[in-house]
Design a protein around this nucleic acid. Structure first.
Lengths: 188, 188
DNA sequence: GTGCTACGATACAGACCTGTATCGATATAG
DNA sequence: CTATATCGATACAGGTCTGTATCGTAGCAC
């Protein structure tokens, strides 16, 4: 049946939750093993190092992001509507207790050296988001699509950080209207 | 004459630079002592714990922020001009190699627990910036000053994070124009 | 049954961390 | 000169971290 959760999945889910909430450096492998009820050696059998576990979490977060992005925007009729659908969803999410910021911004802050594997994955993710924004800004008819894309990008990351700094009920409550204003000004 | 640098200042300046560049958890007191050329016991005589040193750095960063803010805006004739002066200066700074993001966002990311002393100082700082933005937004004649203030706040923190994530030449190159667009839309 | 594999539990090695203790040198006040 | 305080250097204690080694067990193929 393969329905039951494997030890590897159990480790991964526990690590994901702990990394996201408390940070990468603050959580040790002993904590992950104990919290997941999985033996330490089983953890190391599936993930040869803590960095491998961090990298796996980030790559999974990237997939989840794009799956969610696709689901959010697939019914929007225009590029502009797709962008707004994303920012409305973002606004809702970052004001939720389940939000602890952005895994990619968090890892880049904790490991600022750009050659750290996790930072690399984070950079690739952010560049891909930036590229998607550029594409949509162009399709939406922005006069300077690259500028609009970067402006929206700043709003997004500002909203994520507002969540991590303030918790729920943070300054990101109006991020969607800010995005709308920037888009309108860029296409007129 | 008191011109010479005291050991306490030497420790503080070294710690500030290292914390800002590499992060709070990544830098140990041994590194600070060695890098500053100051004995470890001298460090602990002036700062009883590493957390005290972190807190002192954050409080100093807060003072520097407001001194800089005052200097930047004191010659601006209107509230709107003051806001723009700040965001133009921010745009310049975050695209500089000397920028490693925002010390307050960084500490909040590394120590997400809100009861951590450094997180508290960071929260107070961000709330005071938010309040200043609200005051200026109101003076500038925004129809919804609180909303405009929070939108600008997101732009600011997004710009700081862009710097930490990407280094120099980051998506924050157009943060000032984004601020201008939001302000114009809010006051018209 | 028998051999094999995955697993949990635990102990351990080596490194690093914060914070303390100790000692010798130096500088300054009286 | 002498006493006191500050400093640098170093060793150390106790804890935590990553990663490994070891052992006993449970399930499964054959």
């Amino acid at each position: 049946m393969k329905k039951e959760i494997t030890p590897k999945d159990q480790v991964f889910q526990t690590a994901s939750k702990l990394f996201y909430q408390h940070g990468y450096r603050a959580i040790g492998v002993d904590t992950i093993a104990a919290e997941s009820g999985i033996g330490k050696m089983t953890l190391y059998r599936h993930y040869p190092s803590k960095d491998d576990l961090i990298t796996a979490y980030l790559k999974d977060s990237n997939e989840l992001f794009w799956n969610n992005f696709e689901a959010l925007t697939k019914d929007a009729p225009t590029a502009r509507a797709k962008l707004m659908a994303f920012f409305e969803s973002l606004q809702e999410y970052v004001n939720t207790p389940a939000c602890y910021g952005c895994p990619f911004l968090n890892v880049a802050t904790e490991y600022p050296e750009t050659d750290y594997p996790g930072h690399q994955v984070a950079l690739e993710h952010k560049q891909s988001v930036r590229a998607k924004f550029r594409q949509l800004a162009k399709e939406a008819g922005a006069k300077k699509p690259d500028v609009l894309a970067d402006q929206l990008f700043l709003l997004m990351d500002g909203a994520y950080m507002a969540s991590r700094m303030f918790g729920a009920n943070n300054p990101a409550a109006h991020v969607a209207s800010a995005a709308r204003t920037l888009i309108e000004a860029a296409v007129e």
